[in-house]
Design a protein around this nucleic acid. Structure first.
Lengths: 336, 336
DNA sequence: TTGAAAGCGCTAACAT
DNA sequence: ATGTTAGCGCTTTCAA
């Protein structure tokens, strides 16, 4: 591993000039810069982040906290954030806050305090007061994605409005008996998303003067299987059947779709189904959904963090995250 | 951010003793250790990884290279590796080698050479000669998972044997007309897994003296959609229909299953389907598969790396990665 | 525009 | 068992 001294010697300049030439900070003549570049390339020299970060206080590394990795939505957001940060030359260190409470505490008490990162992105995590305070105490740029947090700079999509949009789509098609598959106890603890989507659903019904019917609310855990079971209950032959289902995630919507197929109920002729998220499988199942572009959300979070680190105004900061109704083939007017 | 001097002062010892007490290296009296602990806790002191790594040469950070994030298999392995490393107090920095060739080159030329990591785990990446050399040049423990690489210490499951096992299961049930959905050109470039699974399929047929039939081979891209399209071609009414399909991944097997349903072909009565991987949706679809426990693979990779870092013999090193046939409800004897 | 030199906050010899 | 001290390899004043 070549060191800065060797580069300086080969280029015939001081280490200070090498540092300036390679980092782009401070004035360096074109000639010197070129010689330094050539020397560094010849030696295969790369600035040691250990030494550089100790001297400068900058690590070129961003911490990303995620609640789960093995779910499409989170890994897609991570993918977006990761590629944007890497393009900017930043490393990313990953803090996977799993179900394990000890690990979670360690992340906030220790891992994040090791001065390894210049900034933090917290993805879809509901932070409690104490954790939020710990994050703020780091004295670093912190940005949250999803789940508005009044004490943090947060990018979030309007879950209530998305749910309203999905429900309104069904209402406009003429549906009146609309069921909702969504939140359930345990899951709720970490994410308020489900309840916000339920609220949007209720708002849309109220605006259209459709009475809320508790029998048409089925809790589920945001998995395909959960959506399938919830739909099976809703579509039970012994009770009046809704003409449409709004599922609070595409995974649950897909589960509902498969449940309908199992029961010989045709979609969309006998039953309309709409989801939320923009899941990769939505195209395959021809699922109508409200897309929230998770890959782009990750990229936006990265851009916001980079803007703060580089001290520029973040042009996209104020704008709310976009979402869009994608009408495919699982929704249609009810029969007669 | 409190520094080591403040802790030393508060504990009434030198900074060297603080360092020793907190790192566990070297001899410290119980009394001193306790005072240091208390002082550190009182001040909220955490060792700065910047300073510590410069002085010691250790970063307590492992780099993980993955080819994709938004696919269940890779994110699951990452999840396993991540949780195991975090439990051992290690950070992980994530290098997502996307489709972008420039980013890929940068990772090997620059990112990995910044001396930010103590070791590298390369997940399911086919490295070319040059990249393998670059990894080795780092002078760090490197372990690969999946895709055997003769120059690297590698944990890998025997893809050929897994495919053989899946195919033998069909043969033992009495199937003779067995189709395979697997590799296709472009995908092949990065992963040799598909061709190894094809080989296992062919071996099992040969052992049972079943003639290979090129008409029963359909290339697909390892997605649900690809599996669906491949199965639709295989199940086309105008040609002789196989009695069983072995898909080289669970995602494709699920696609095939849905294609059969679309065509009114009953599974397993009219068609048996078996996959590979142990996908989370396998249970839901009652899919027969050969599970390769990707979460455990990630954990094993982490354990192997930690063993090398800590200089212990890795007890699990020699053992091949386990796999297991999980018989569920998509396979049965053919109809006479 | 460039160089000399003083740190950045730890760790690890070496001494005691 | 503990303290003293010389680095680790850079960055950044400060001076020239």
């Amino acid at each position: 591993m070549a060191s800065i001294d060797e580069v300086a010697r080969l280029a015939g300049v001081s280490t200070a000039t090498v540092s300036r030439a390679l980092s782009g900070r401070g004035q360096v003549s074109d000639a010197a810069r070129e010689r330094v570049r050539a020397a560094a390339a010849a030696l295969g020299y790369v600035v040691s982040s250990r030494a550089s970060s100790l001297a400068s206080g900058r690590t070129r590394n961003v911490g990303v906290i995620v609640p789960l990795l093995d779910q499409w939505f989170f890994s897609t957001m991570l993918s977006g954030a990761s590629s944007a940060l890497m393009r900017a030359g930043y490393d990313i260190t990953l803090y996977n806050i799993t179900a394990d409470a000890d690990v979670r505490r360690e992340v906030f008490d220790t891992f994040l305090r090791r001065q390894r990162v210049d900034a933090v992105i917290a993805v879809a995590i509901e932070l409690d007061e104490h954790e939020t305070g710990q994050l703020l105490d780091l004295g670093l740029p912190v940005i949250g994605v999803g789940g508005p947090n009044p004490r943090l700079r947060t990018l979030s999509v309007d879950d209530t409005a998305m749910a309203r949009l999905a429900t309104e789509h069904l209402i406009e098609l003429g549906h009146r008996e609309i069921a909702h598959i969504g939140a359930a106890g345990e899951f709720e603890a970490d994410f308020r998303v489900p309840s916000r989507r339920l609220r949007g659903f209720e708002q849309a019904l109220a605006t259209a003067s459709i009475a809320a019917n508790p029998a048409l609310l089925e809790p589920a855990d945001f998995t395909v299987d959960g959506g399938h079971r919830a739909a099976a209950r809703l579509l039970d032959a012994r009770r009046p059947r809704p003409s449409a289902i709004f599922a609070a995630s595409d995974e649950m919507a897909i589960g509902a779709l498969l449940a309908a197929r199992d029961l010989g109920i045709r979609v969309p002729e006998d039953l309309s189904i709409v989801g939320i998220d923009g899941h990769e499988l939505g195209e395959f199942f021809q699922l109508t959904t409200v897309d929230q572009f998770p890959l782009a959300q990750g990229e936006r979070a990265a851009a916001a963090v980079l803007a703060q680190l580089e001290g520029q105004a973040d042009a996209t900061a104020a704008a709310a995250l976009p979402y869009e109704l994608i009408v495919r083939s699982t929704t249609a007017p009810p029969r007669s």
